[in-house]
């Protein structure tokens, strides 16, 4: 799984951090999303999908194709 974020679209809700704190963080100044892990391990995929689904600004894109190691 490849995670991509669009910082310009992000509205700083922080829902992604609540859903997947190992993958997303927020800049303190404005709450904008920071990507901690663009290729999260399999056990976090569900949480990352939750994060993308709840993002109010559609700022998280997931490429679900299996990782080529």
């Amino acid at each position: 799984m490849l995670v991509q974020i669009d910082q310009e679209k992000c509205c700083g809700a922080g829902h992604c951090v609540l859903a997947a704190p190992d993958v997303f963080d927020q800049r303190d100044e404005d709450g904008i999303v920071v990507l901690l892990d663009a290729r999260p391990p399999a056990e976090l995929h569900q949480a990352v999908q939750d994060a993308a689904a709840v993002c109010p600004a559609a700022a998280i894109q997931l490429d679900q194709a299996p990782d080529r190691a």
């Binding site: 700083g12 922080g14 951090v17 609540l18 927020q26 800049r27 303190d28 100044e29 404005d30 709450g31």
Partner: peptide, 11 residues
Amino acid sequence: IACARALRQLR
């Protein structure tokens, strides 16, 4: 405003 972390902790 501009205190995302402190605010999130209040949630």
